[in-house]
Structures are given as structure tokens and as C-alpha cells.
């Protein structure tokens, strides 16, 4: 798509969102994502969020990637616990800890 056409399209969809009652722009949508997933929105705000998501392909892609990246982050952090071969504790650190424990019973 040529750039001018793309801009026109974006301007059109942005304007439509602004003037249609109960519609929000992507930028407004962005500000309530955290509250939506925390279940902190009123029923009305919730519907507004879901309506935007239903019709906006940009936010659909965004949200999908946003949530998958959260999941990837969380699962990767949890892998710390599933590591079969944890590295050894440095000997000096081990000794320092045991010494401190002995000193301050």
C-alpha cells in the first residue's frame, strides 16, 4: 500500500473511533489493558474494551503478542526451578554464609 493511502486509511479509522459513541481509539484502549486483565473495569468499560478489540486488527495482533510474551516471560523465569543441573555454589560464598551463621547464633 502506498504511504498516502495508508495514512488516509489510518486517519479514517482513527476519526471513526473518535466520533462513534462507545468507541475508543487504540491509544485509549492501550491505557486500560492492565485494568482489563486485572478485572478492574466497570461493565461498561469492559464492553468498550472488548468492542474495540473485536473490530481492530492492530490491537488484536498487539494483544495476542502482549499476552504470549507475558507467558513466555513467566515460563522462562519458572525454568529457574526446573533446571536439572544447577551450577554449584561458589565455595567462598558457601563458607562466608556458614561462618556468619556460626558467629551470630
Amino acid at each position: 500500500m502506498i504511504k498516502a493511502l495508508k495514512n488516509m486509511k489510518a486517519a479514517f479509522s482513527g476519526t471513526m473511533m473518535k466520533i462513534t459513541p462507545g468507541m475508543i481509539t487504540c491509544e485509549e484502549f492501550d491505557k486500560i489493558i492492565v485494568d482489563y486483565y486485572d478485572d478492574n473495569l466497570s461493565a461498561k468499560q469492559r464492553r468498550t474494551f472488548e468492542r474495540h478489540l473485536k473490530i481492530c486488527p492492530h490491537c488484536q495482533d498487539y494483544i495476542k503478542a502482549y499476552n504470549e510474551s507475558r507467558k513466555l516471560g513467566a515460563l522462562s523465569m519458572e525454568e529457574i526451578y526446573n533446571d536439572d543441573l544447577p551450577e554449584d555454589m561458589p565455595e567462598e560464598l558457601l563458607q562466608a554464609i556458614l561462618e556468619t551463621v556460626k558467629e551470630k547464633p
Binding site: 481509539t25 492492530h58 495482533d61 515460563l75
Partner: peptide, 21 residues
């Protein structure tokens, strides 16, 4: 997060998604 002057999201298209698992 990027938006244009009209508040529309600028998200590069996602032809495919990999899942975390």
C-alpha cells in the same frame, strides 16, 4: 507502543505467531 496522530496503533503485521510452549 506507537500510535499515529489519530490514536491508531502502528503495529507491524504478524503473518505468524509462535507460542510460548
Amino acid at each position: 507502543d506507537d500510535f499515529d496522530a489519530y490514536g491508531t496503533r502502528l503495529e507491524a503485521p504478524w503473518p505468524q505467531f509462535m507460542n510460548a510452549e
